[in-house]
Amino acid sequence: MKLFTTYKPGKLNLGGGIHWISETDGVYQGETINQASYMLENLMSKYDFNHNLSAKLDINNLFDKNYNSNVGSFVT
Rank of each mutant, 00 (worst) to 15 (best):
E41D: 11
Y28P: 02
G30W: 08
G15S: 05
L53C: 01
D25G: 06
S37A: 07
I33A: 02
N61T: 02
S45D: 11
L40C: 08
F4A: 15
N52E: 12
K8H: 08
K2G: 15
D64F: 03
I18M: 10
Q29T: 14
T6N: 07
N66H: 10
Q29K: 15
K2D: 15
Q29P: 05
H51N: 12
G30E: 08
K8S: 14
Q29F: 12
T76D: 14
E31F: 13
S54C: 01
N61R: 01
T24L: 00
I33W: 04
V27Q: 02
V71G: 00
H19E: 15
N70D: 07
D48Y: 12
K8D: 08
D64V: 04
E31W: 09
T32P: 05
N60S: 09
L53R: 00
Y28S: 10
M44L: 14
N61Q: 06
N66Q: 12
L43E: 05
D58V: 05
N60I: 06
T24N: 10
D58Q: 11
E41K: 10
D25Q: 10
D25E: 12
N66W: 00
G16R: 09
E41L: 13
I33N: 00
A36N: 11
F63V: 04
Y67D: 00
T76H: 09
S69N: 11
I33D: 02
S37W: 01
N61E: 03
Y7W: 14
G17T: 14
K46I: 07
L40E: 12
G26P: 08
I59G: 08
G16I: 15
N68R: 06
K11E: 05
K56I: 14
M39V: 14
S54Q: 03
L12C: 06
K2Y: 10
K56D: 04
L62H: 02
Y7M: 06
G17Q: 10
H19G: 14
I21M: 11
T32A: 03
S54D: 01
I59P: 01
E31S: 15
N13K: 15
A36Y: 01
N42T: 13
G17S: 09
L14T: 03
S73T: 13
N34Y: 10
G17Y: 09
G26D: 04
H19Y: 11
D64K: 11
V71Y: 05
N52M: 12
G26H: 06
F49W: 01
F49P: 01
Q35R: 04
N50I: 02
L53E: 03
P9Q: 13
S54Y: 04
S22Y: 04
G10N: 15
I21D: 10
H51F: 02
G26A: 05
T76K: 12
L14W: 06
L62S: 03
K11V: 06
K11S: 08
L53Y: 06
L40R: 08
T76V: 13
G26C: 03
Y7I: 09
N60R: 10
I21T: 13
N70E: 08
L62T: 05
G16S: 01
T32D: 00
N68C: 04
Q35Y: 03
T32L: 01
N50C: 02
Y7S: 04
D58I: 07
N50T: 06
F74R: 09
V71I: 00
G17F: 11
A55K: 05
Q35E: 11
E31H: 15
I33F: 07
P9L: 14
M1E: 14
H51C: 02
Y47M: 02
D48I: 13
N70Y: 01
F4C: 09
